[in-house]
Structures are given as structure tokens and as C-alpha cells.
Design a protein around this nucleic acid. Structure first.
Lengths: 207, 207
DNA sequence: TAACTGAATTGAACTTGGCTCAGGTTGATC
DNA sequence: GATCAACCTGAGCCAAGTTCAATTCAGTTA
């Protein structure tokens, strides 16, 4: 069922990584629709048709970026909360981890948020659909990460009992909503955002 | 500066409202990109070129939907909080108002959320750009609605002092994040969501 | 060194869907 | 029943994503 996507091993001449990087830059800054696929090719230094050696379509590339970001988010969450036993501290660690990101990763989160709706409907082509399903699964995994954290806290009596599923989705929604408007060049540093949201989440869940 | 968009008064034969309704249905259910502009025309019962009598482009129609929804949200907020003096009660009323919506309005909120990024960059054509600027202004108005509510509560001592701008954006982000996943046909009734979020917002702000 | 192989690349042509244009129809008003 | 603006249409244009057959390149085999 859980068909894991096998990451194509990079031949020494492969431009796959370069394409992904260029795509993240352009999709993140200008937006997916506003970015011409051929522009990405230019940036990498290849003809536009060469892109199809690596990705089945522009959308396939987008879905790949989204899946990779979801995988990263999940890994980061797991790593950050692994050896924290106190529920409140685990929650705080998870929030801090969510905002401990590079500028490139900010773009990836923005892309992910802006195209979540792509994950609902099925795709025509095989490889696109594979990426979509994998991403959809990872969304559920991440949601479970947060729900489990809350369930643990509730059963330990650290958090009042509430609908953990719904509250988890809300906490997650609150956290990721930042990526819609945050800009590294903007007036508010990410550290400040991180602190405010951390406090907000704790009050939301633990009060 | 604040160039208000003059709503074209409906001639008796005008299909503008019907087009908007059909567009909301399709853009909301299938997604904007996935919806063929000609499909909307079919649904309304006119040829696709007739659409251009009412909207300059498919995107112009989308931006109009977004602006109208923002206007509605702002009006609803104002109406709901107008004669509530107690800050906590005003906050509660505002949240409840945000979720007091019809199925059609759920779709409109979904469309709005899914295409917020359109509002950042400028548009080529005149009327599109006018709608974009109007929508962008309304976003700021709505943000101010929430920020002001918090400022009032803080200065009255009902809410602890925090960065009202940032906290307002967060509360708003939390509330609207629901429209990404909520489906009227889904397992969770909106009333339940409304109650949980209402409590969460109060704890977040007033604790 | 010549032949071979698969990955990487390309130019040219195809497809789709949004959009333009030049003109035609309808109906309210005088 | 002439006029005018609102409303509508068929034919075709164009941009951008995509396909395809053919080619180059780098490493391997003989």
C-alpha cells in the first residue's frame, strides 16, 4: 500500500538536483503558474525539452518538491521530539523545529502551502499520481505526528482533554499559516514569530 | 488612493451573477487551474467568448470572487462585533461569525485561501490589477479588524500585552486554515469546529 | 581503437486552452 | 420602426506545455 518513492540515484551528469533547486527558487518567488517551465531550463543551462528527461511534467516537478518538503518536515519533527518526555516541552520543541529552517526551505514551505489543493484530486499520469499519493500520505503522517503529541499530553494529564485530531489540525494550521506571508527580507524576524507561535500553541493546548 | 470598485449594475439580461455562481462552484470543487473557462460558459448556457463581455479574463473572474468574499468577511466581522463591548465576548462573536457561512461561502473561502498568492504580484491588464489592488486592500482591512480587536482588549486589560499585529495575523491564520480541509460533506460539522476554534482563540489571546 | 550502450540533450512539430476580432442579434426607448 | 447599447457568436490566433525522432556524450566492452 505505502508505495515508497524510490529516489532516482544521481548519475554523475544528472541535473536533477539543479533543476529542483532552480524550480524551488522560481516557483517560490514568482509562483508556480507565473513561472515558465522554459525559464527553469534556461537557469539550469539546458533546453526546455531536456527537463522531460528528469520530470514527466512541470506539475510532476512541483509535486516532487512538495513531497520532499513534507518528508523533511516529518523528519525534523521526529528528530526534535524524540527524546523529550515532558509533553509541554515536546510541544515547544516541535514548534521551534518547525521554524528552524533555511531560506530555501522557507520557499519550499511556501510552495507546499500554496498548492496543497493539488493533493486532493487524482492525476492523469503515472509518476505524477505516485508523487501525489506519496505526498498525501506524508500529510497524514505529519498530522498524526501532532495528534499523537497531543494525545500523549492529554493522557498524561498535562493537557486538558479535547478532540486531539481537530486540535492537532488547528495547531498545525496555525503554524504553517505563517509561510503564506513571511518573507526573510520582511520586518519580522523568524525568531520573533517562532516565540510568539510557541507561546500561542502552548496556551491553546495546555490551558 | 482607495479606488473603490464600482459594481457593474446588473442589466436585466446580465448573466454576470450566474457566471460568478458557476465559477465559484467549479473553481471551488475542481480548482481554478483544473477548471476550463469554457466549462463555466457551458454551465451558464452561453458560448465561451460571451464570458469576455463580463470579465476581462478567467483570472479577472477569480480575483472578483476573491474580492467579493473579502468584502463579505469584513462586513460580517463588523456586524458581529459592532455592539459588543466586552473584548472576550467580541472575540468570541467574531470567531462565530467567521464560521457562520453557507456552503457557497465555504467554496468562496476555499478559493480565496488557495489563491492568496495571486495578490502579491502586479497584473498585466487594467481591470485585473484594479481587482487585485482592491482585494489586497481588503486583506489589510480584515487584518486591521482583528488587530484592533486585540489592541482594544489589551488596552482594557482584558488581554495580556503582546505584539497585536503578529498575534492578530496568527489568529486570523488559525481561523482560515480550516477552509483548506473542511468539507460540508465531511465527518466534522462546522459547529464543532467553530466551538473548538473559538475556545482556542480565547485561550491564545486572553490567557 | 572500434564498436556498443544507456543517459542526456535537442529542434521541430503538436496540443490545449485562454483569448481576440469582426461582426451579428436582442430588446428597451423614443 | 429606428436607434443604440448591451449582449452574443464563429473563426481563428497565440503562448506555453508537451511529444517525438534523431543526435551527442561518457563510460564500457572487445
Amino acid at each position: 500500500m505505502a508505495t515508497k518513492i524510490v529516489e532516482p540515484e544521481a548519475g554523475p551528469r544528472s541535473k536533477r538536483a539543479a533543476i529542483l533547486a532552480a524550480a524551488v527558487d522560481h516557483f517560490g518567488e514568482a509562483g508556480f503558474e507565473a513561472t515558465k517551465w522554459s525559464t527553469v531550463a534556461e537557469r539550469v543551462g539546458i533546453g526546455q525539452t531536456a527537463l522531460y528527461h528528469y520530470f514527466e511534467s512541470k506539475t510532476h516537478c512541483l509535486l516532487t518538491i512538495m513531497r520532499l518538503e513534507l518528508q523533511r518536515s516529518h523528519d525534523k519533527f521526529t528528530e526534535a521530539t524524540a527524546d523529550v518526555t515532558d509533553p509541554v516541552e515536546a510541544l515547544r520543541a516541535a514548534v521551534r523545529a518547525a521554524y528552524d529552517v533555511s531560506d530555501q526551505e522557507v520557499l519550499q514551505m511556501r510552495i507546499l502551502q500554496n498548492h496543497m489543493d493539488l493533493l486532493s484530486g487524482p492525476r492523469k499520469s503515472k509518476r505524477e499520481e505516485a508523487e501525489r499519493v506519496a505526498a498525501r500520505q506524508l500529510v497524514q503522517v505529519v498530522e498524526r505526528d501532532w495528534t499523537n503529541l497531543l494525545v500523549r499530553g492529554m493522557s498524561q494529564g498535562a493537557f486538558p482533554l479535547r478532540d486531539a485530531q481537530l486540535l492537532g489540525a488547528s495547531v498545525l494550521g496555525l503554524i504553517v499559516s505563517v509561510w503564506r506571508w513571511y518573507r526573510p527580507s520582511g520586518p519580522t524576524p523568524l525568531s520573533e514569530i517562532s516565540e510568539l507561535i510557541e507561546g500561542a500553541c502552548v496556551r491553546m493546548v495546555a490551558t
